[in-house]
Amino acid sequence: MANTLESPKAKPPLPQRLQNAQQQAADWMQDSQFWTSVFRPGSIFRKGYTDSPRNRSYVIMNSVLYHLHPVKVKRHAVKVSYTLCLGGLSFFLFILLTITGIFLMFFYRPTDTAAWADIESLHTQVAFGLLVRNMHRWAAHLMVITVFLHMARVFYHGAYKAPREFNWVVGVMLLQLTLLLAFTGYLLPWDQLALWAVTVGTNMMGFTPVFGEQVRFVLLGGQQIGAETLLRWYVLHVLMLPFVIVIFMAIHFWRVRKDGGISGPL
Protein backbone atom coordinates (compact mmCIF):
# COMPACT_ATOMS: atom_id res chain seq x y z
CA MET A 1 0.00 0.00 0.00
CA ALA A 2 2.71 2.37 1.04
CA ASN A 3 4.66 1.50 -2.04
CA THR A 4 1.76 2.42 -4.29
CA LEU A 5 1.27 5.73 -2.55
CA GLU A 6 4.88 6.65 -2.97
CA SER A 7 5.02 5.86 -6.67
CA PRO A 8 1.54 6.29 -8.14
CA LYS A 9 2.88 6.01 -11.68
CA ALA A 10 4.35 2.52 -11.18
CA LYS A 11 3.57 0.37 -14.19
CA PRO A 12 1.34 -2.67 -13.69
CA PRO A 13 2.95 -6.04 -14.51
CA LEU A 14 3.41 -6.95 -18.16
CA PRO A 15 0.48 -9.44 -18.53
CA GLN A 16 -1.80 -6.80 -17.08
CA ARG A 17 -0.52 -4.19 -19.51
CA LEU A 18 -0.95 -6.56 -22.45
CA GLN A 19 -4.49 -7.27 -21.39
CA ASN A 20 -5.23 -3.55 -21.10
CA ALA A 21 -3.77 -2.90 -24.54
CA GLN A 22 -5.89 -5.72 -25.95
CA GLN A 23 -8.99 -4.29 -24.31
CA GLN A 24 -8.22 -0.82 -25.69
CA ALA A 25 -7.72 -2.22 -29.18
CA ALA A 26 -10.98 -4.14 -28.93
CA ASP A 27 -12.82 -1.06 -27.71
CA TRP A 28 -11.32 1.07 -30.48
CA MET A 29 -12.38 -1.50 -33.10
CA GLN A 30 -15.88 -2.00 -31.72
CA ASP A 31 -16.42 1.77 -31.50
CA SER A 32 -15.30 2.36 -35.09
CA GLN A 33 -17.81 3.37 -37.71
CA PHE A 34 -16.83 0.35 -39.79
CA TRP A 35 -17.58 -2.14 -37.02
CA THR A 36 -20.91 -0.64 -36.01
CA SER A 37 -21.98 -0.49 -39.64
CA VAL A 38 -21.21 -4.17 -40.19
CA PHE A 39 -22.73 -5.57 -37.00
CA ARG A 40 -26.26 -4.35 -36.52
CA PRO A 41 -27.84 -3.87 -33.08
CA GLY A 42 -28.32 -7.20 -31.38
CA SER A 43 -25.24 -8.78 -32.91
CA ILE A 44 -23.24 -10.58 -30.27
CA PHE A 45 -20.10 -8.95 -31.78
CA ARG A 46 -21.32 -5.45 -30.97
CA LYS A 47 -20.01 -3.61 -27.94
CA GLY A 48 -22.05 -4.07 -24.82
CA TYR A 49 -24.07 -7.08 -25.97
CA THR A 50 -26.05 -8.37 -23.04
CA ASP A 51 -28.50 -11.21 -22.83
CA SER A 52 -31.73 -9.22 -22.69
CA PRO A 53 -35.14 -9.89 -24.25
CA ARG A 54 -34.57 -6.87 -26.49
CA ASN A 55 -31.24 -8.20 -27.77
CA ARG A 56 -32.65 -11.70 -28.17
CA SER A 57 -35.19 -10.21 -30.54
CA TYR A 58 -32.60 -8.11 -32.37
CA VAL A 59 -30.38 -11.17 -32.94
CA ILE A 60 -33.12 -12.63 -35.14
CA MET A 61 -34.51 -9.46 -36.70
CA ASN A 62 -31.17 -7.93 -37.66
CA SER A 63 -29.51 -10.98 -39.17
CA VAL A 64 -30.03 -11.93 -42.80
CA LEU A 65 -29.41 -15.55 -41.89
CA TYR A 66 -31.65 -15.85 -38.86
CA HIS A 67 -34.59 -13.68 -39.90
CA LEU A 68 -35.92 -16.75 -41.67
CA HIS A 69 -37.18 -17.42 -38.15
CA PRO A 70 -39.70 -15.34 -36.24
CA VAL A 71 -38.43 -13.67 -33.06
CA LYS A 72 -40.51 -15.99 -30.94
CA VAL A 73 -42.04 -19.41 -31.50
CA LYS A 74 -44.52 -21.52 -29.60
CA ARG A 75 -42.85 -23.37 -26.77
CA HIS A 76 -43.72 -26.80 -28.17
CA ALA A 77 -42.12 -25.86 -31.52
CA VAL A 78 -38.63 -26.04 -30.06
CA LYS A 79 -39.18 -29.54 -28.66
CA VAL A 80 -36.88 -31.87 -30.57
CA SER A 81 -39.20 -34.77 -29.75
CA TYR A 82 -41.94 -33.13 -31.87
CA THR A 83 -40.09 -32.38 -35.13
CA LEU A 84 -37.05 -34.64 -34.65
CA CYS A 85 -35.32 -31.79 -36.54
CA LEU A 86 -35.99 -33.70 -39.76
CA GLY A 87 -36.88 -30.69 -41.93
CA GLY A 88 -33.94 -28.72 -40.57
CA LEU A 89 -31.60 -31.66 -41.10
CA SER A 90 -32.78 -32.00 -44.70
CA PHE A 91 -32.03 -28.32 -45.28
CA PHE A 92 -28.68 -28.57 -43.57
CA LEU A 93 -27.75 -31.63 -45.64
CA PHE A 94 -28.64 -29.60 -48.73
CA ILE A 95 -26.15 -26.92 -47.62
CA LEU A 96 -23.52 -29.57 -46.89
CA LEU A 97 -24.14 -31.06 -50.35
CA THR A 98 -23.80 -27.64 -51.96
CA ILE A 99 -20.46 -27.00 -50.27
CA THR A 100 -19.00 -30.45 -50.99
CA GLY A 101 -20.49 -30.32 -54.50
CA ILE A 102 -18.77 -27.03 -55.33
CA PHE A 103 -15.49 -28.59 -54.18
CA LEU A 104 -16.04 -31.58 -56.48
CA MET A 105 -16.81 -29.30 -59.43
CA PHE A 106 -13.25 -28.00 -59.38
CA PHE A 107 -11.93 -31.43 -60.28
CA TYR A 108 -14.58 -32.88 -62.57
CA ARG A 109 -15.24 -32.62 -66.32
CA PRO A 110 -18.59 -33.99 -67.54
CA THR A 111 -17.32 -35.74 -70.66
CA ASP A 112 -17.37 -39.47 -71.34
CA THR A 113 -13.59 -39.51 -71.79
CA ALA A 114 -12.62 -37.47 -68.70
CA ALA A 115 -15.31 -38.00 -66.05
CA TRP A 116 -14.27 -41.38 -64.65
CA ALA A 117 -10.55 -40.57 -64.73
CA ASP A 118 -11.21 -37.25 -62.97
CA ILE A 119 -12.88 -39.06 -60.10
CA GLU A 120 -10.13 -41.64 -60.01
CA SER A 121 -7.50 -38.90 -59.72
CA LEU A 122 -9.70 -37.03 -57.21
CA HIS A 123 -9.26 -40.10 -54.98
CA THR A 124 -5.52 -40.27 -55.31
CA GLN A 125 -4.17 -36.83 -56.32
CA VAL A 126 -6.38 -34.29 -54.51
CA ALA A 127 -6.01 -33.49 -50.81
CA PHE A 128 -9.21 -34.64 -49.05
CA GLY A 129 -10.69 -35.46 -52.47
CA LEU A 130 -11.86 -38.93 -51.51
CA LEU A 131 -13.19 -37.72 -48.16
CA VAL A 132 -15.21 -34.89 -49.72
CA ARG A 133 -16.60 -37.21 -52.40
CA ASN A 134 -17.57 -39.71 -49.70
CA MET A 135 -19.32 -36.97 -47.75
CA HIS A 136 -21.18 -35.82 -50.86
CA ARG A 137 -22.34 -39.34 -51.64
CA TRP A 138 -23.43 -40.31 -48.13
CA ALA A 139 -25.02 -36.94 -47.40
CA ALA A 140 -27.07 -37.36 -50.59
CA HIS A 141 -28.38 -40.76 -49.48
CA LEU A 142 -29.00 -39.36 -46.02
CA MET A 143 -30.97 -36.42 -47.43
CA VAL A 144 -33.31 -38.77 -49.33
CA ILE A 145 -33.92 -40.56 -46.02
CA THR A 146 -34.43 -37.38 -43.93
CA VAL A 147 -36.79 -35.84 -46.51
CA PHE A 148 -38.81 -39.07 -46.57
CA LEU A 149 -38.92 -39.25 -42.76
CA HIS A 150 -39.85 -35.54 -42.57
CA MET A 151 -42.79 -36.28 -44.86
CA ALA A 152 -43.86 -39.18 -42.64
CA ARG A 153 -43.51 -37.06 -39.48
CA VAL A 154 -45.63 -34.25 -40.93
CA PHE A 155 -48.29 -36.72 -42.02
CA TYR A 156 -48.53 -38.46 -38.65
CA HIS A 157 -48.91 -35.11 -36.88
CA GLY A 158 -51.69 -34.14 -39.29
CA ALA A 159 -49.66 -31.01 -40.01
CA TYR A 160 -50.79 -30.99 -43.65
CA LYS A 161 -54.30 -29.93 -42.64
CA ALA A 162 -55.69 -26.42 -43.06
CA PRO A 163 -54.17 -23.88 -43.25
CA ARG A 164 -51.07 -25.81 -44.33
CA GLU A 165 -52.52 -27.80 -47.27
CA PHE A 166 -50.54 -26.00 -49.94
CA ASN A 167 -47.26 -26.24 -48.07
CA TRP A 168 -47.72 -30.01 -48.03
CA VAL A 169 -48.05 -29.92 -51.84
CA VAL A 170 -44.83 -27.86 -52.04
CA GLY A 171 -43.23 -30.46 -49.75
CA VAL A 172 -44.21 -33.32 -52.07
CA MET A 173 -42.59 -31.35 -54.92
CA LEU A 174 -39.44 -30.99 -52.80
CA LEU A 175 -39.41 -34.76 -52.21
CA GLN A 176 -39.52 -35.35 -55.96
CA LEU A 177 -36.84 -32.73 -56.62
CA THR A 178 -34.64 -34.39 -54.00
CA LEU A 179 -35.03 -37.75 -55.75
CA LEU A 180 -34.25 -36.13 -59.12
CA LEU A 181 -31.14 -34.46 -57.71
CA ALA A 182 -29.97 -37.76 -56.26
CA PHE A 183 -30.71 -39.61 -59.49
CA THR A 184 -28.95 -37.10 -61.80
CA GLY A 185 -25.91 -37.19 -59.52
CA TYR A 186 -25.86 -40.99 -59.74
CA LEU A 187 -24.72 -40.90 -63.39
CA LEU A 188 -21.82 -38.48 -62.96
CA PRO A 189 -19.04 -40.90 -61.78
CA TRP A 190 -19.52 -42.61 -65.16
CA ASP A 191 -18.68 -46.07 -63.86
CA GLN A 192 -20.52 -49.34 -64.42
CA LEU A 193 -22.72 -48.72 -61.37
CA ALA A 194 -23.76 -45.27 -62.64
CA LEU A 195 -24.35 -46.28 -66.25
CA TRP A 196 -26.49 -49.31 -65.56
CA ALA A 197 -28.45 -47.91 -62.63
CA VAL A 198 -29.41 -44.96 -64.80
CA THR A 199 -30.15 -47.27 -67.74
CA VAL A 200 -32.60 -49.22 -65.58
CA GLY A 201 -34.08 -45.98 -64.18
CA THR A 202 -34.54 -44.23 -67.52
CA ASN A 203 -35.96 -47.35 -69.21
CA MET A 204 -38.84 -47.10 -66.73
CA MET A 205 -39.39 -43.51 -67.83
CA GLY A 206 -39.98 -44.68 -71.39
CA PHE A 207 -43.14 -46.52 -70.33
CA THR A 208 -44.99 -43.26 -69.65
CA PRO A 209 -47.83 -43.05 -72.19
CA VAL A 210 -48.02 -40.41 -74.95
CA PHE A 211 -44.83 -38.44 -74.20
CA GLY A 212 -42.68 -41.03 -72.36
CA GLU A 213 -40.37 -41.72 -75.29
CA GLN A 214 -39.98 -38.01 -76.06
CA VAL A 215 -39.14 -37.12 -72.45
CA ARG A 216 -36.62 -39.96 -72.35
CA PHE A 217 -35.05 -38.77 -75.62
CA VAL A 218 -34.70 -35.19 -74.37
CA LEU A 219 -33.25 -36.28 -71.02
CA LEU A 220 -30.75 -38.69 -72.58
CA GLY A 221 -29.92 -36.48 -75.54
CA GLY A 222 -30.33 -39.55 -77.76
CA GLN A 223 -31.63 -43.10 -77.84
CA GLN A 224 -29.20 -44.40 -75.26
CA ILE A 225 -27.02 -42.99 -72.50
CA GLY A 226 -23.89 -41.35 -73.86
CA ALA A 227 -21.70 -38.27 -73.75
CA GLU A 228 -24.73 -36.00 -74.33
CA THR A 229 -26.55 -37.55 -71.39
CA LEU A 230 -23.60 -36.93 -69.12
CA LEU A 231 -23.47 -33.23 -70.01
CA ARG A 232 -27.25 -32.80 -69.66
CA TRP A 233 -27.41 -34.53 -66.31
CA TYR A 234 -24.42 -32.59 -65.09
CA VAL A 235 -26.14 -29.28 -65.89
CA LEU A 236 -29.37 -30.55 -64.34
CA HIS A 237 -27.51 -31.74 -61.25
CA VAL A 238 -25.28 -28.74 -60.53
CA LEU A 239 -27.41 -25.86 -61.81
CA MET A 240 -30.98 -26.37 -62.92
CA LEU A 241 -32.37 -28.65 -60.20
CA PRO A 242 -30.58 -26.77 -57.37
CA PHE A 243 -31.99 -23.52 -58.80
CA VAL A 244 -35.52 -24.94 -58.84
CA ILE A 245 -35.28 -26.62 -55.45
CA VAL A 246 -34.02 -23.40 -53.81
CA ILE A 247 -37.09 -21.56 -55.11
CA PHE A 248 -39.37 -24.29 -53.75
CA MET A 249 -37.50 -24.31 -50.44
CA ALA A 250 -37.92 -20.54 -50.14
CA ILE A 251 -41.67 -20.91 -50.67
CA HIS A 252 -41.78 -23.86 -48.25
CA PHE A 253 -40.01 -22.01 -45.42
CA TRP A 254 -41.92 -18.76 -46.05
CA ARG A 255 -45.23 -20.63 -45.94
CA VAL A 256 -44.32 -22.29 -42.65
CA ARG A 257 -44.35 -18.81 -41.10
CA LYS A 258 -47.27 -17.44 -43.10
CA ASP A 259 -49.40 -20.46 -42.14
CA GLY A 260 -48.82 -19.69 -38.46
CA GLY A 261 -45.61 -21.52 -37.61
CA ILE A 262 -45.29 -25.26 -37.27
CA SER A 263 -48.44 -27.18 -36.38
CA GLY A 264 -49.71 -27.36 -32.83
CA PRO A 265 -49.19 -30.18 -30.35
CA LEU A 266 -51.48 -33.18 -30.77
Binding site: E120, H141, P189, D191, A197, V200, G201, M204, I225
Partner: peptide
Protein backbone atom coordinates in the same frame (compact mmCIF):
# COMPACT_ATOMS: atom_id res chain seq x y z
CA UNK B 1 -17.07 -40.94 -44.77
CA UNK B 2 -13.75 -41.52 -43.02
CA UNK B 3 -14.47 -45.23 -42.75
CA UNK B 4 -16.64 -46.08 -45.76
CA UNK B 5 -15.69 -45.03 -49.26
CA UNK B 6 -18.17 -44.15 -51.99
CA UNK B 7 -18.18 -46.88 -54.66
CA UNK B 8 -16.34 -46.36 -57.94
CA UNK B 9 -16.52 -49.41 -60.22
CA UNK B 10 -14.80 -49.82 -63.58
CA UNK B 11 -15.30 -47.29 -66.36
CA UNK B 12 -18.80 -47.30 -67.90
CA UNK B 13 -19.03 -49.92 -70.64
CA UNK B 14 -22.07 -50.27 -72.88
CA UNK B 15 -21.07 -53.75 -73.99
CA UNK B 16 -20.89 -55.29 -70.56
CA UNK B 17 -24.15 -55.45 -68.61
CA UNK B 18 -23.60 -56.18 -64.93
CA UNK B 19 -25.76 -58.88 -63.43
CA UNK B 20 -27.91 -57.84 -61.65
CA UNK B 21 -28.43 -54.29 -62.95
CA UNK B 22 -30.15 -52.30 -60.27
CA UNK B 23 -31.59 -48.78 -60.19
CA UNK B 24 -30.54 -46.48 -57.30
CA UNK B 25 -32.05 -47.84 -54.07
CA UNK B 26 -34.81 -45.20 -53.87
CA UNK B 27 -36.15 -46.42 -57.23
Amino acid sequence: SLFINAPLLELANHNETPNPSKAPWYF
